[in-house]
Amino acid sequence: LGLPKMEVFQEYYGLPPPPGAIGPFLRLNPGDIVELTKAEAEQNWWEGRNTSTNEIGWFPCNRVKPY
């Protein structure tokens, strides 16, 4: 089972920042694999864990694709 995984195809370094105070941003590099921890199809921002860095944070969902 486990959490859904997504592959990063466009880098994200915190700009634009996540809206409001939902949480810290998650740095993404192309090729990184992100395990989704909070993701809803109608939301533009998802939370996940970058398996390369083990960091957890928020990122724009348009930077990832199904793994």
Score class of each variant (00 low, 15 high):
residue 1 L to I: 15
residue 1 L to M: 15
residue 1 L to V: 13
residue 2 G to E: 11
residue 3 L to G: 07
residue 4 P to Q: 15
residue 5 K to A: 11
residue 6 M to N: 01
residue 6 M to I: 07
residue 6 M to Q: 14
residue 7 E to K: 13
residue 7 E to L: 07
residue 7 E to F: 13
residue 7 E to Q: 13
residue 8 V to Y: 00
residue 8 V to W: 01
residue 8 V to G: 04
residue 8 V to M: 03
residue 9 F to E: 09
residue 9 F to K: 14
residue 10 Q to V: 09
residue 10 Q to T: 11
residue 11 E to A: 07
residue 11 E to S: 08
residue 11 E to R: 06
residue 11 E to W: 03
residue 12 Y to V: 01
residue 13 Y to R: 12
residue 13 Y to M: 15
residue 13 Y to D: 10
residue 13 Y to L: 09
residue 14 G to S: 00
residue 14 G to P: 00
residue 14 G to M: 04
residue 15 L to Q: 15
residue 16 P to V: 01
residue 16 P to S: 00
residue 17 P to L: 11
residue 17 P to Y: 08
residue 18 P to M: 01
residue 18 P to Y: 07
residue 19 P to M: 04
residue 19 P to G: 05
residue 19 P to H: 04
residue 19 P to D: 09
residue 20 G to W: 04
residue 20 G to K: 09
residue 20 G to D: 14
residue 21 A to W: 09
residue 21 A to R: 11
residue 21 A to K: 08
residue 21 A to E: 11
residue 22 I to S: 10
residue 22 I to N: 07
residue 23 G to E: 15
residue 23 G to L: 05
residue 24 P to V: 08
residue 24 P to A: 08
residue 25 F to A: 15
residue 25 F to T: 11
residue 25 F to E: 06
residue 25 F to C: 14
residue 25 F to Y: 11
residue 27 R to N: 08
residue 27 R to V: 08
residue 28 L to W: 00
residue 29 N to S: 08
residue 29 N to D: 15
residue 30 P to Q: 13
residue 30 P to R: 15
residue 30 P to S: 12
residue 31 G to D: 05
residue 32 D to Y: 00
residue 33 I to W: 07
residue 33 I to S: 05
residue 33 I to M: 11
residue 33 I to T: 13
residue 33 I to E: 05
residue 34 V to P: 03
residue 34 V to E: 04
residue 34 V to N: 02
residue 35 E to G: 03
residue 36 L to E: 02
residue 36 L to Y: 00
residue 36 L to Q: 00
residue 36 L to T: 11
residue 37 T to Q: 11
residue 37 T to E: 05
residue 38 K to C: 11
residue 38 K to W: 07
residue 38 K to A: 09
residue 39 A to F: 14
residue 39 A to V: 12
residue 39 A to M: 15
residue 40 E to M: 09
residue 40 E to T: 15
residue 42 E to Y: 08
residue 42 E to V: 14
residue 42 E to N: 09
residue 43 Q to I: 08
residue 43 Q to D: 14
residue 43 Q to G: 14
residue 44 N to W: 11
residue 44 N to L: 12
residue 45 W to C: 02
residue 45 W to H: 10
residue 45 W to L: 02
residue 46 W to K: 04
residue 47 E to Y: 07
residue 47 E to Q: 14
residue 48 G to Y: 04
residue 48 G to E: 03
residue 48 G to P: 01
residue 48 G to T: 03
residue 49 R to D: 02
residue 49 R to L: 10
residue 49 R to K: 13
residue 50 N to Y: 02
residue 50 N to R: 03
residue 50 N to E: 03
residue 52 S to G: 11
residue 52 S to V: 08
residue 54 N to C: 08
residue 54 N to Y: 07
residue 54 N to F: 05
residue 54 N to Q: 13
residue 55 E to K: 12
residue 55 E to V: 07
residue 55 E to D: 09
residue 56 I to G: 06
residue 56 I to D: 09
residue 56 I to L: 08
residue 57 G to C: 01
residue 57 G to L: 00
residue 58 W to H: 03
residue 58 W to A: 04
residue 59 F to P: 03
residue 60 P to S: 02
residue 60 P to I: 00
residue 62 N to D: 11
residue 62 N to F: 04
residue 62 N to R: 09
residue 63 R to I: 05
residue 63 R to E: 00
residue 63 R to F: 13
residue 65 K to I: 09
residue 65 K to P: 04
residue 65 K to L: 07
residue 65 K to N: 06
residue 66 P to V: 08
residue 66 P to M: 07
residue 66 P to F: 15
residue 66 P to S: 09
residue 67 Y to V: 14
residue 67 Y to N: 06
